[in-house]
């Protein structure tokens, strides 16, 4: 059998990749998906811990996380549409009005 820590390490790596995606991508949509990836990585870790401790509550949390992620996707994409309408671009660096 595979140890739980293997799963958690996979979750950690996915989380790191998501972080990197947030840092380097210029496209808002990809940046946004990176955020979703980070959420998924956290979910994976929770499920692994839940299995280890044999407590099913973790699954409920993950279910709720999925609901939140779905809601976030809906709102976030609406924002993306609005932003695109205003600036005709999705380059995140163009949205820098809130500076000094």
């Amino acid at each position: 059998m595979i140890s739980i820590s293997s799963y958690v390490i996979v979750a950690a790596v996915l989380f790191g990749i998501g972080t990197l995606g947030v840092l380097i991508s210029r496209n808002i949509i990809i940046l946004f998906m990176s955020l979703e990836l980070m959420l998924n990585a956290a979910s994976l870790a929770i499920i692994a811990f839940s299995r280890e401790l044999n407590v099913i509550d973790g699954h409920v949390f993950v279910f709720l996380i999925l609901a939140v992620a779905a809601a976030e996707a809906a709102v976030g994409l609406a924002m993306v549409i609005t932003l695109f309408r205003n600036k005709e671009t999705l380059n995140i660096d163009r949205f820098n009005l809130m500076k000094w």
Partner: peptide, 13 residues
């Protein structure tokens, strides 16, 4: 104040 570039990615970094 020039630290506040207004770029989200810089803040995130």
């Amino acid at each position: 104040r020039t630290m506040q570039t207004g770029r989200v990615r810089t803040y995130a970094t």
